[in-house]
Simulated scan of single mutants.
Amino acid sequence: MSSRTLPGRTTAAASGDVVVFLIGMRINHFWAVHRWLPVFCAMPMMLRELSRDRSLGLLHHTLLTGSPRTYYVVQYWESKERLLAYAAAPDRRHRPWWGRINRLARKGALHVGIWHETYVVPEGSYEAIYGDMPPVGLGRAYGTAPLRNGVQAQDRLRV
């Protein structure tokens, strides 16, 4: 997908349900590098695997930081079924890493916090508007389309 600025107002070309997965970590004790570094390194490995094989269902992801100790990833998935299948697949990176991370968390209680949230947003319950922007978020995951004149947020959200 291009990162060039698209002139005017556009919207995400998504249809149907949208699956948004947020996952992150918080370094509770910086000095316990041996506890949080493996957790920190696990996500880029999984994202590389998912980026190499688009059939796994990850459409787009964005890495973010909330503070010097909090890191998270916003992911857009093709479906909840693909997300759950990847999480459970024994031949993919997630399942073995999840076991390692759980063991590390038990041994190093309170050194690193981990969390995730999953949202399945039904069609008609999401909206995206971009003005003079390159594709980001839903627009990057699903592509963009021109925003139709005269259509209001209440029309797009079906309120």
Score class of each variant (00 low, 15 high):
Lys80Trp: 01
Thr11Pro: 01
Arg92Glu: 05
Leu59Asn: 10
Glu127Gln: 06
Ala128Phe: 10
Phe30Ser: 01
Phe21Gly: 11
Arg156Val: 07
Leu110Asp: 05
Ala13Arg: 08
Gly139Gln: 13
Met46Val: 14
Glu49Cys: 11
His60Met: 00
Ser125Asn: 15
Val136Asn: 11
His60Asn: 14
Arg26His: 08
Ser51Gln: 08
Ala105Arg: 14
Arg106Tyr: 08
Val33Phe: 15
Pro44Arg: 11
Asp91Thr: 12
Ala13Ser: 13
Thr118Pro: 04
Leu56Asp: 12
Leu50Ala: 05
Leu56Asn: 14
Gln152Glu: 14
Ile114His: 05
Val112Phe: 02
Ala89His: 15
Arg26Val: 07
Val73Pro: 01
Met45Tyr: 03
Met1Gly: 15
Pro38Phe: 06
Arg4His: 12
Asn102Val: 02
Phe21Glu: 11
Met45Asp: 09
Gly137Val: 00
Leu63Asp: 09
Arg54Leu: 04
Trp36Met: 06
Val73Phe: 07
Leu138Glu: 05
Arg82Asp: 13
Ser51Pro: 01
Met43Cys: 04
Ser2Val: 01
Gly113His: 06
Ile27Thr: 02
Lys107Val: 04
Asn102Ser: 08
Asn102Trp: 02
Met25Tyr: 08
Lys107Trp: 06
Leu84Trp: 01
Lys107Pro: 01
Trp98Pro: 00
Arg54Lys: 13
Ala14Asn: 14
Leu84His: 12
Ala105Asp: 02
Pro135Glu: 12
Val74Ala: 10
Arg4Gly: 05
Ile27Gly: 02
Lys80Gly: 08
Leu64Ser: 13
Tyr76Phe: 12
Ile23Leu: 07
Val39Met: 03
Thr62Trp: 12
Ala88Glu: 15
Leu138Tyr: 08
Tyr142Met: 09
Tyr126Val: 03
Val20Trp: 05
Arg140Gln: 15
Val20Asp: 03
Lys107Gln: 12
Gly108Ala: 06
Leu147Cys: 05
Pro38Asn: 09
Phe21Leu: 07
Lys80Val: 05
His94Thr: 06
Pro38Gln: 06
Asp91Trp: 00
Gly24Cys: 07
Val151Arg: 15
Ser79His: 13
Val136Arg: 14
Ile27Met: 02
Leu37Tyr: 06
His29Leu: 01
Glu123Met: 02
Arg48Cys: 06
Ile101Tyr: 03
Leu58Lys: 13
Val121Leu: 11
Pro68Ile: 08
Ala153Val: 13
Ser55Tyr: 07
Pro122Ala: 08
Thr70Cys: 09
Thr65Lys: 03
Glu78Met: 10
Arg158Glu: 04
Thr144Tyr: 01
Gly143Arg: 12
Val74Gly: 04
Arg48Glu: 13
Thr65Arg: 13
Arg54His: 12
Pro68Tyr: 08
Val112Gly: 01
Leu83Tyr: 05
Ala85Tyr: 01
Arg26Thr: 10
Gln75Asp: 05
His111Asn: 10
Arg106Gly: 04
Leu50Lys: 08
Arg48Asp: 15
Pro96Cys: 07
Val19Met: 04
Val151Leu: 13
Lys80Gln: 13
Arg100Pro: 00
Arg158Tyr: 00
Leu157Asn: 10
Ala145Met: 11
Glu117Ala: 11
Val112Glu: 02
Trp98Leu: 09
Asn28Gln: 12
Gln154Tyr: 13
Thr5Ser: 04
Gly8Tyr: 11
